[in-house]
């Protein structure tokens, strides 16, 4: 139970920038999230038309995960026992509000099925799992703030009990045009020890 786990890589998306392991890999000024994330998707050169059908939270989580998992050269034809442990504050509020607008008036009541299916935050985990063929444990937690202690404890528990061999963890927060993603990969690879302090330090990088 004392196996040492490390953080092998991490990704930030905020302030019109995408960075990998602290280095900016994409930066383009846009006045809204929608245009920025579309530009980031194109820069990633990931041919995945379903991206355009996702809600904003899923797009944010998807691109952050894509940046990290591409770097790992994951073979999606093989089963990857990678857990997903995500968190945020606003849950799926951005999409919830969009759905609520569509059902606001009795005489103009046209809820969109394509919007409704995203009115849960953990749907973004499904989108990542579909793309990367992950059939492993996944959880989405709602906190008032970035909770490194909980992410650390929960992830270690999954790894130490062999529920997963690696874990993609972090924070994907989105409300309107305010967005921030911080994802990191925990496994036996890498040089940064997986502990609360290091998670906090990387989050604040």
């Amino acid at each position: 139970m004392n196996t040492k786990y490390n953080i092998s890589s991490f990704c930030h998306i905020k302030n019109n920038q995408v960075s990998l392991n602290g280095s900016v890999i994409f930066s383009e000024q846009h006045s809204n999230f929608s245009d920025f994330i579309k530009a980031a998707y194109k820069a990633q050169n990931t041919k995945y038309p379903k991206f355009f059908k996702m809600d904003h939270l899923s797009k944010l989580a998807f691109i952050a995960a894509d940046v990290l998992l591409k770097e790992q050269n994951i073979d999606i034809e093989k089963e990857n026992n990678m857990a997903l442990v995500f968190s945020n504050k606003a849950s799926s509020l951005d999409t919830d509000l969009m759905h609520q607008k569509a059902i606001q008036h009795k005489d103009n009541y046209f809820p969109s099925p394509a919007v409704f299916v995203y009115t849960l935050p953990n749907i973004c985990l499904g989108e990542i799992s579909i793309k990367y063929k992950l059939y492993s444990e996944n959880s989405f937690f709602i906190f008032e703030y970035f909770n490194a202690a909980h992410l650390f404890t929960y992830t270690n528990s999954l790894l130490e009990t062999d529920k997963a061999t690696s874990a993609l963890c972090g924070w994907v927060e989105l409300e309107g045009d305010n967005y921030e993603a911080f994802l990191y990969l925990v496994s036996k690879e890498g040089n940064t020890e997986h502990n609360k302090q290091n998670i906090k330090t990387l989050y604040n990088t």
């Binding site: 046209f110 099925p113 394509a114 299916v117």
Partner: peptide, 16 residues
């Protein structure tokens, strides 16, 4: 490459 959710969207579109 349309899926089942797209089919539901088309049903809403016919109505709206």
């Amino acid at each position: 490459a349309l899926d089942s959710i797209d089919a539901l969207e088309l049903i809403v579109m016919l109505d709206k």
